[in-house]
Amino acid sequence: MTTPTLGAPSTALRAALQFYPASYRRERGEEMAAVFADTTAEADRSAVAREVFDLAAYGLRVRLGLTGGSVAGRVLALAAPMVAGALAGSGLVPWVSNPDQSAFRLTWDQSYTTYALTIAPPVAAILLAVAALLGRWTAVRVVSLGLAFFGLTVLAQAFSGPIFLDWWWAGYVGMATVPSMISALLLVAAPTELLPGPTWRTRGLVLASMVGGGLLVALQRWDDTRFPLDVQWFAVLLIVPVLLTFTVLRGWLAPAAVGVAVLSLTTAASVFNIWREARGLSQLLPLALPVVGLLVLVAMGMRRIGAGTGIDGGAGGGSGRSPA
């Protein structure tokens, strides 16, 4: 589309449009700038700022391939109730599986910090579950980002502990904190317009994921020796959900969404435990490279079989719900 320029667009508008890929900007930039000019003509500064943020956010989605029309966006929207439920369930694990130990932490000292660090995660998990059950996705995102920030702080402390760059300790802490960061990113990345309403199906999915996610995390807890997992099981907890995500190559969105939700909880623990059991990267690579190669072959095979089954179109292979 060839059009004259609109006049000098504001710095904020130009900056927001920079988030879009160049090809998209060429195709739609002038048109979007015109709509932006009309919508902000009589708006105050805060309304203009919201418009700019919204424009930039969609640009980032287009650039990352996470729009409501993309396969990745639809998988993330399907996975969102499961990710939120699983994260909530995992946050409640210490209080459900070992309430005495959690209560004992409160008696360590009388500081507000101890109280806050002990009570905040389960309270946030309950808030997260309630928000997900009610279909309040903005609240779900805010709470999950809060949990991610909390996890990031704890992880940063682990890295800067008495022994600088203690990878073992950081790995242990990371097993407990990285899932919240991955989950928050997935929930923020899911296209808002595709997130499901508070139907009974969604609520059931959230509740089932709370139970499933809680059990999965309880199983992986490194400080609980009641259910010690062999390293093979950590490989299974990594490889099986990865294989599930490959189903997207055949246009099956629902199993891929399950894979994404499981991976949000198992990736950190699996990678760390496999690395730990292999006793270093040099021992791990000869084992891991053939597995990764095999997974790539499986993905290529599924891609070839799945060609033409609608993974790029609106059909979605019949496994996902209509994105309209």
């Binding site: 709509v35 418009e51 424009l55 409501g68």
Partner: peptide, 8 residues
């Protein structure tokens, strides 16, 4: 908003 409109 503009971004939301073009997303839809």
């Amino acid at each position: 908003r503009t971004g939301t409109l073009y997303g839809a």
